[in-house]
Amino acid sequence: MGKYVFRILRFDPQKDKTPYFQEFEYESSPKDAVLDALLNIRENLDPTLSFRHSCREAVCGSCGMVINGRITLACRTILESLKDKLVIIEPLPNLEIQKDLMVDLTPFWQALREVEPYLQPAESHPPKGYRIDAKQMEKIYQFINCILCGCCYSACPVVARGQGYFGPAALAKLYRFVRDPRDLRPFSQWEKIDKPQGIWGCDTVFRCHDVCPKDVRPADGIEGLRRKLIVEKLKKVFRRKPK
């Protein structure tokens, strides 16, 4: 056990004019995750402290936040992995604070809906399931690891500019479907990402790769979409019949 100081950003828009930092001292095991420490603080020091949590095993995507300047999941950040006994905790950037460490993910979910993130297969299905080569299926496995925690969206400098960029997660999700051998969405349908708010917005500075807790590498998906889009466009040009 060791004494840690947790400096936590507090803000209740119903009461406070501006956010402020509050410090809590708490005796914690170095093996504890930051999420454990937050729960302990809430249970023992201040029951009004608000933050999201669910699975505590890095699979539900609830507890993205900024810990000592790094965007990450609180449940998977073990105290002893931090250099310091001072732990500074802030809510995810690029999103409005609802209360304390809870942010409003509405624009993140809206961007996800924009890309029509669902399989669009043929009308009739093979009765015993599709036959898909294992290797082909594994190609999308990188992207299905995404837990939609919003860490990449918060870290993205293009999202920060506030011009309606969809963000890394939504585009990586689209790529997962475009690459799925079962998905037959016509090119005309996903062509709408051919704009600055879509795939051309990405600055390829890979902040999303740095912060992704599940190693999804969303920009790989964005680059994949760019390549595929160019190929489809060329196909269109060559298919056009001369008048």
């Binding site: 399989l119 009765p127 015993k128 399931g129 080569d133 294992a134 998905d183």
Partner: peptide, 21 residues
């Protein structure tokens, strides 16, 4: 139900021959 899930988009792992593992 399993085939329905697969048609809805669940990316099940595969055996050689492409069937659900």
């Amino acid at each position: 139900v399993l085939y329905e899930l697969e048609h809805l988009g669940v990316p099940f792992s595969r055996f050689p021959g492409g069937v659900i593992a």
